[in-house]
Computed example of a mutant assay.
Amino acid sequence: MTIRTTVWGENVHEQTNEIVRSIYPDGMHATIASAIAADPTVAVSTVTLQDPEHGLTEEKLAATDVLVWWGHQAHGEVDDAVVERVARRVFEGMGLIVLHSGHFSKIFKRLMGTPCALKWREAGERERLWVINRNHPIAAGLPEYFELENEEMYGEPFSVPEPMETVFVSWFQGGEVFRSGLCYKRGAGNVFYFRPGHETYPTYHDPNVRRVLLNAVKWAYNPAAAWIGIHDAPNVPTETAPEKIEERGPKLHAPGEAGYR
């Protein structure tokens, strides 16, 4: 089994901000990818916003089992056609992991169908992430809690749909709390949101964060073949019904005619 993983990075702050560049000299996407590549069963590649079609061509997505997404400043620069392309692949079974400020990315908002808004404060305060779902695969190998000495605060309410499972809850030095690890299913695809990762702090160098990234990729992976037919809405002929029936009453569509969309 090889999990084909693509890490998508906005790659803007690394080019414009000296602090971010000093922490992530090869780009945040490269550091995130290195955590996932630590497992030999995962094959990792990276693409960025600046690549043609943001690196997310039809061919690239077809060859991706799990997509990891980090974005912040340039959400609006992501082409809507690419967003729909990614959403389609998630519905078909591709896993998606959305990190930190990606809560406001077009793809996450598209899949959640809600504002995905929250409170925030950039004060470099301590974050304590409590593992509240001890037996969840994403929490494998983690202690009861772990701390990040400097992080951006995110606070409730977080206007997302109720998740299937919550893995982490964060407490911040200023007193706020936040649901920091949320699991969803969209179509055939597994979606995980993981909160930490502000670009001016070395979050993605932290061993526990890196373990979460790898665990999340393995959890999001769906070994089944892509469910291409999930988008279809066929007009099923009467004669092919599992039980014999006779048509009765008026109808809008001729046999085999496509429905309205």
Rank of each mutant, 00 (worst) to 15 (best):
P250N: 04
P143T: 02
P137F: 04
N133G: 13
L99K: 07
V20C: 10
M164L: 00
R21S: 12
V44R: 08
H205Q: 12
T5H: 03
V191N: 02
T31M: 08
M164V: 00
P161H: 08
V66E: 03
W219G: 01
R85W: 11
G259N: 04
G71R: 07
T2R: 08
I3P: 03
R186V: 13
G229T: 13
V217W: 12
F158M: 04
G197N: 02
L49Y: 04
G197V: 02
T114M: 11
P163D: 00
V160K: 06
T41K: 04
M153N: 06
A254N: 04
V78N: 09
W70V: 10
T166I: 07
D80E: 15
R186Y: 12
G174T: 06
E151W: 03
N208C: 15
P40C: 04
A37F: 03
R210F: 02
P115V: 13
A258W: 13
A74Q: 00
M94D: 15
L129R: 03
E239S: 13
W69I: 00
G76A: 05
F91A: 05
G71M: 11
V98K: 00
P223I: 10
G102D: 00
A224V: 05
A254T: 04
V78L: 14
G181N: 04
A188F: 09
W219V: 11
A30E: 11
T16N: 12
P157F: 12
L111I: 15
E147F: 01
A35Q: 05
Y221R: 02
P143W: 01
H253Y: 15
T5Y: 03
E147I: 13
W219S: 03
A226Y: 13
L111T: 11
P163N: 00
A241H: 12
N190L: 09
A37E: 09
T5L: 01
S45W: 13
W70P: 06
H29P: 04
W227K: 11
I36M: 04
G187M: 14
V83P: 00
F146A: 06
E156H: 10
D26M: 14
V191W: 05
I107H: 02
P137M: 03
I107L: 08
V42G: 03
E176W: 14
K185A: 15
I107V: 13
T203F: 02
A62I: 13
P163H: 00
R128V: 10
E149P: 01
N133K: 15
P40Y: 02
W69N: 00
S180T: 02
I23W: 08
G155R: 06
V7R: 03
G113D: 10
E144K: 11
F108Q: 07
R21N: 12
V236P: 02
R248S: 07
N135L: 05
P207Y: 01
S180P: 04
V68K: 01
S34D: 14
T200I: 12
S45V: 14
L129S: 11
L214I: 01
